[in-house]
Design a binder for these strands. Structure first.
Lengths: 112, 112
DNA sequence: TTTTATACCTAAGATTCTTAGGTATAAATT
DNA sequence: AATTTATACCTAAGAATCTTAGGTATAAAA
């Protein structure tokens, strides 16, 4: 998940956002989508992704549907109602986080 | 350190930035400065701060100077040369992180 | 006199990730 | 034809970073 530790803690937010936009997605698809959207900047490792998906499911935020495509399994995930609310919550939280970091680390100089 | 896990991984960047701006600071001062700058949004816990400072020192990024003020100890930290470079590096990394998260999660809609 | 503020510290446990494996099918390359 | 790459899922050990919950000590405020 990139060589930067700053991404730590942001994975579930990313997953929830993608599912909010994209309807249902399967794990591998998520890794590819993120790689594409960030032009390779952020690579989600499977060792991080799958446990995260399983936890979101266990917490009732995601619902699974297994499909067989080209004789290969795909586990499609989509947001539950609870997951939809949590997606909004985490997105708002991320915006606040970004603002806070901005004001703290890149403060606008005041005229004096 | 706030109830949001998004701050995970950002502590050393915050410390280095504050020392880049503020010259030398001691631990307690850092916690108060951050609380003030973020209007209470981000509270650095001492259980996170002190081990982080010790690691930065062990890695040669910070240099310590102990002073006694009002019969109480203060350990002033300042950036070494190596720490100054690392501060720049981590600040740049943070900017890139913020841009990436922006484009991924709050993409500008295209005209079509 | 007790509480709050200042100032440092550590250790156990939780969480989240990396690293390094594993299985299996389909497509592409050599 | 055989090997590699891409697709698609998975787990377990260990690292890193944090929380929680303590500890010590002095000075100021209630």
């Amino acid at each position: 998940m990139s060589n930067s530790k700053l991404y730590k803690g942001s994975l579930t937010t990313i997953i929830l956002k993608l599912l909010e936009d994209g309807g249902k997605m399967y794990g591998y698809e998520i890794t590819q989508k993120v790689k594409e959207m960030t032009r390779g900047e952020l690579q989600i490792t499977e060792g991080a992704l799958y446990p995260a998906l399983h936890k979101l499911e266990a917490d009732g935020l995601l619902q699974v549907e297994v499909k067989k495509v080209d004789n290969r399994l795909r586990k499609y995930y989509k947001l539950t109602q609870k997951g939809d609310k949590e997606a909004s919550r985490q997105l708002a939280e991320l915006e606040k986080f970004m603002e806070t970091m901005q004001t703290m680390l890149f403060p606008k100089p005041k005229f004096s």
